[in-house]
Simulated scan of single mutants.
Amino acid sequence: MSAKPTTIKEIAKILNISPSSVSRGLHDHPSIGAVTREKIKQLAQSLNYQPNNAAILFQKGKTYTIGVILPELSEHFFSTAISAIEDEALKKNYTVIFAQSHDDYEQEVKLVEKMKNQRVDGLLVSISKDTSKFDHFERLNSFNIPVVFFDRIPPFKNVHYVACSIENATVKAVNYLLKKGHRTIGMINGPTTLFASEERKEGYMQAITFNRLKFDPSLIVNCDLTEKGTIEAANQFINHKRKPTAIVTFNDYVALFLIKYLKKANVVNEFDVVSFANLPFISYLDHTPIASIEQYPYLQGQKAANILLDLINSPNPESQAYYNTLVESDLVINSEKL
């Protein structure tokens, strides 16, 4: 078994001086004579003394650690965002702690509490699909822990956030399908608890009404983003009295579930599909969405990390105006952006 780390108290006891004198000597404080400083340093070196960085940082009121809570680390969107967050944190000598909510609200609440207990200096969050209450984040205000949301954000402005312009992106997607001649367009949307679902709905309605078409609310079906939920939504469209000829999906994973099911039902060629995220694996499918919205996860992660670091290092973070940052999207068709 390895020996316990040497402490300042042990060095002080050997030299018969106070622990505070040892600490000042190790940091070349002028109140400690040169001879004593040299004795302290030589003994510390011989005993392989390593400073307790956690204790030092705690005294400074910082841990130089930021927390990140995401729905799923395995999703390409979030893994790309993580790369950006780590890159930006490393530039400022911060350590990053990651955790997954697995799209579960109760898990998210527990993780926020754990991050607080870990004394993170700030928190980056993409909320779960079930999150409709936000008091667990609001409680962090009393601990001076700033929070920046990204991608999946709360439905109000008095928070710091970075997100893609989802409403505009949906307008682009629906307009593209209309230009291709589609007049009955369905949408498999996400849970109603997600602000991004409302944004997609608003974008859909805006494009439909602008093009002087009648909005049919039955052509928007909400699902829980699972394969089972996607299949249930697909069946509604297959059996719809106004069977759509094109479907906009909440993301590429829902598009994958949808296309898989449509192939099984032998109707895959009856629908054009447009999705969100523009994930790399889509290009390897036999049947792919004809277009996908690029949401730039690296840029979102980069901007969110920099905003959080600015808030952490701001002398008066409580008086800081809210950062509401939108990243413009692109509609990608056969690797060409529109």
Score class of each variant (00 low, 15 high):
152 R>S: 11
163 A>I: 04
184 T>W: 03
186 G>Y: 13
182 H>N: 11
150 F>Y: 14
177 L>N: 05
163 A>G: 02
183 R>Q: 13
143 F>G: 05
177 L>S: 04
179 K>V: 04
189 N>E: 10
140 L>S: 06
179 K>N: 11
149 F>C: 02
146 P>C: 08
157 K>W: 01
169 A>V: 02
181 G>S: 07
162 V>E: 00
168 N>S: 12
199 E>K: 15
195 F>R: 01
184 T>V: 11
195 F>A: 05
137 F>V: 02
159 V>C: 04
154 P>I: 00
154 P>C: 00
191 P>C: 06
183 R>I: 06
175 N>D: 08
137 F>K: 02
166 I>E: 13
187 M>D: 09
164 C>P: 04
141 N>Q: 14
183 R>A: 07
176 Y>R: 05
185 I>G: 12
179 K>S: 09
193 T>L: 08
154 P>H: 00
139 R>N: 13
190 G>W: 10
191 P>L: 07
170 T>K: 02
157 K>T: 09
147 V>E: 10
193 T>R: 08
138 E>V: 09
144 N>G: 11
150 F>E: 10
171 V>M: 03
182 H>D: 10
148 V>A: 05
182 H>T: 08
157 K>R: 10
194 L>C: 08
187 M>E: 11
158 N>M: 03
162 V>H: 00
138 E>Q: 12
139 R>Q: 12
151 D>M: 12
146 P>V: 04
182 H>E: 07
180 K>P: 03
162 V>I: 01
182 H>K: 07
173 A>C: 04
197 S>R: 10
179 K>R: 10
142 S>Q: 15
150 F>W: 12
